[in-house]
């Protein structure tokens, strides 16, 4: 990352992780600076979510070290597929879970409620605060969990596949929200396998396939050799208004019935 530009919030040094005997990450060295917006890119099973969880301190590496800034607060946005949408909670209750105040008893302070209300309002879903989480659209649900992450007043926000299953408008809105966050001093790290819709629009990318294959701006990392090593598929690149566009190199498709 930009050396010396911003203080490092969390640093991984030669980190490895395994589920039982299956090593999914090895020799990962990565630093996340304040105000950075980083995309972790890779195919399914490449270790993206594991890397995100190690950054967040959910998983402890089996080798290597994780050094985090003292008192660093983290907001985490899970994959929507992992959320129990039938759990009996309303939108405001979910957001309030993120409050950093450690209070005893049922209920929240007026200050906490106002903050949750304002966050939801800022994210454009203020009028849904008393609805059940299942009653919202995919994009609105994503914003609820972003609001919960922000409720923690975080230094670092981690998002696991935040653009999965959302429409183009929502994707653009979420990217804008995340970009705004970095201007407020927050570091943002997200995972994605969407190269054109997400990764190409981020300032910094980490390509992962069990290890860090490459890291840097999209112009340096979204190149055929790196993509072949990361995704195991041949891809071509064209450029449009300064953004690289990745195109699959499909093998010739055989026609059916001679047509």
């Amino acid at each position: 990352m930009d050396e010396g530009a911003e203080p490092t919030l969390v640093h991984l040094e030669s980190v490895a992780y395994a589920y039982a005997e299956d090593v999914v990450l090895d020799q990962v060295t990565l630093g996340i600076d304040r105000r950075s917006l980083v995309g972790i890119v890779g195919p399914s099973g490449s270790g993206k979510t594991t890397l995100l969880k190690i950054l967040g301190g959910v998983l402890d590496p089996i080798r290597g070290s994780r050094i985090a800034a003292a008192g660093m607060r983290i907001g985490y946005v899970p994959q929507v597929e992992t959320v129990n949408w039938y759990f009996p909670v309303t939108v405001d209750e979910v957001v309030l879970m993120g409050s950093p105040e450690r209070r005893i008893g049922i209920g929240y302070t007026k200050h906490e409620r106002n903050r949750a209300h304002n966050l939801l309002h800022d994210l454009g879903i203020g009028h849904f605060e008393h609805r059940h989480i299942r009653e919202l659209s995919g994009g609105q649900q994503q914003r609820v969990f972003i609001a919960r992450a922000l409720m923690a007043d975080p230094d670092l926000v981690l998002l696991d596949e935040p653009m999965s299953g959302v429409d183009v408008k929502t994707r653009q809105d979420v990217l804008e929200i995340l970009s705004d966050l970095t201007h407020q001093g927050v570091a943002v790290v997200l995972t994605t396998h969407d190269l054109n819709g997400v990764a190409a629009h981020l300032p910094y990318i980490v390509c992962v396939k069990g290890r860090v294959v490459a890291e840097g701006p999209p112009g340096e990392t979204l190149v055929p050799s790196v993509l072949l090593e990361t995704f195991g598929a041949e891809m071509e690149l064209i450029e449009h208004e300064g953004h690289p566009i990745v195109i699959d190199k499909h093998p010739p498709t055989r026609s059916v019935g001679g047509r």
Binding site: I74, G75, Y76, T82, M97, G105
Partner: peptide, 22 residues
């Protein structure tokens, strides 16, 4: 259970994510 209402609710809703939030 009443005293620990807030962390218990988070733990019950999503244990993995709750740990990230402290």
């Amino acid at each position: 259970l009443i005293a620990l209402y807030r962390p218990m609710l988070f733990l019950t809703f999503d244990a993995d994510v709750a740990s990230v939030f402290g």
